[in-house]
Amino acid sequence: MTIASFAFELIARQGRARAGVIHTPHGPILTPIFAPVGTQATVKAVTPAQLEEHGVTLVLSNTYHLYLRPGAELIAELGGLHRFMSWPHPILTDSGGFQVFSLSENRRVDDEGVTFRSHIDGSLHRLTPEIAIEVQEKLGADIIMAFDECAPPYDRAYNERALERTHRWAERCLKAKTRSDQALFGIVQGGIFLDLREQSARFLTGLGFPGYAIGGLSVGETKAEMHAVLELVDGLLPEDKPRYLMGVGTPQDIINGILRGVDMFDCVLPTRLARHHAAMTRTGRLNMMNAAYARDSRPIDPECTCYTCRHFTRAYLRHLIVAREMLAATLLSIHNITTLITLVSEARSAILAGRFEQFAAEFFAAQETLPS
């Protein structure tokens, strides 16, 4: 894969699991990788320094939200997204497609693009493939996404129409792209329909994108259906280019994705759960509001080395939650993000050591015993 300052090295593989390095203008990304989501140019409740301290090397920001507020022009004027949010490491921006199509009654789709009303003030806006690329170029992320149409996973007719638009829009995105220091990924769609997924993967790989995302999963389909799609596209996407599973972030889904050839993951889950008083562990979630933790002097996870687990007890975290202190969201977010960062780091080490299948087997065996 050759783009200015962008390249992917596949270093090791065990089965379909892969370990590699994505080189970007803002530094390397060791894969497999999990990226916390910084929707509005911030990972909620966590500072950039805290992210760095806990091993985060890639964050995702949202084109739709930044386009509406504060505006791509303003961010470009202030030096681009890296400077604006004080994050010197790689950034990925999505195209805004998922958010636009989530607006349901407040948007209208045609072959040229999407007209929608802002969720903020109801103002009318228009996004096309060309505008989506223009906005992302102004934001200045290292990895950007093609504008695609997300369809309900079980609606065959809708998926057929959306797939045709997604493919035409992918061609238009490639044509509109002008910056050589950004890598544009195509997005494989097609719902749960394997023939449509195959059609999408074959068409997009023919366009020669430097990387490929897999969209439209973790949106209501079963785990078996998700796995079937991943297993199919794993055999169709180029070995020498990164694969990115969009919007997936439970420990179980991450390990299942790595087993099926996925390199990159992102999700709002760790920070969203933190704001709802939940702590992630590899084997389940703890409701830190539970009265059972009122006098619990243990950390969330005795094996976790994050700042939260090194310094604070479950009792203290529950106290913060009950007292409605903002620090609770920060400490839980740090722990939840670290849980996923540590998981993918250990998965990478296991692949490099040729023992990932054993690592995965031990991980899933531990699911039988949830933490107390």
Score class of each variant (00 low, 15 high):
residue 46 V to K: 04
residue 214 I to C: 04
residue 367 Q to D: 14
residue 10 L to H: 09
residue 313 T to I: 02
residue 333 S to R: 10
residue 290 N to D: 15
residue 296 D to C: 07
residue 197 R to C: 06
residue 85 M to G: 03
residue 88 P to I: 08
residue 45 A to M: 04
residue 94 D to L: 02
residue 300 I to R: 09
residue 33 I to C: 15
residue 28 P to S: 11
residue 223 K to P: 09
residue 60 L to M: 10
residue 353 A to H: 12
residue 361 A to E: 15
residue 146 A to V: 09
residue 168 R to N: 12
residue 25 P to R: 07
residue 222 T to P: 05
residue 304 C to D: 06
residue 210 P to H: 07
residue 83 R to P: 07
residue 177 K to C: 11
residue 76 A to S: 14
residue 191 G to Y: 08
residue 372 S to M: 12
residue 305 T to N: 15
residue 177 K to T: 00
residue 154 Y to P: 06
residue 325 E to V: 09
residue 342 T to E: 14
residue 304 C to G: 11
residue 240 D to N: 15
residue 325 E to I: 04
residue 128 T to S: 05
residue 332 L to I: 07
residue 35 A to H: 09
residue 247 G to R: 06
residue 207 L to T: 03
residue 90 P to Q: 00
residue 77 E to L: 14
residue 87 W to Y: 02
residue 345 S to M: 13
residue 264 M to K: 02
residue 235 G to M: 00
residue 77 E to Q: 15
residue 87 W to I: 03
residue 165 R to W: 05
residue 349 S to A: 15
residue 312 F to M: 11
residue 203 F to L: 11
residue 98 F to E: 03
residue 78 L to K: 15
residue 168 R to G: 09
residue 335 H to P: 08
residue 51 L to I: 02
residue 25 P to N: 01
residue 74 L to M: 14
residue 28 P to D: 11
residue 92 L to S: 04
residue 272 R to D: 06
residue 60 L to V: 09
residue 321 I to T: 09
residue 25 P to T: 03
residue 50 Q to N: 13
residue 1 M to V: 14
residue 79 G to M: 05
residue 53 E to S: 13
residue 83 R to M: 13
residue 255 I to H: 05
residue 356 F to S: 07
residue 30 L to I: 12
residue 251 P to S: 00
residue 204 L to I: 08
residue 172 R to A: 02
residue 356 F to W: 10
residue 88 P to A: 07
residue 337 I to E: 02
residue 266 D to C: 05
residue 29 I to T: 01
residue 49 A to R: 14
residue 335 H to A: 00
residue 324 R to I: 11
residue 95 S to R: 03
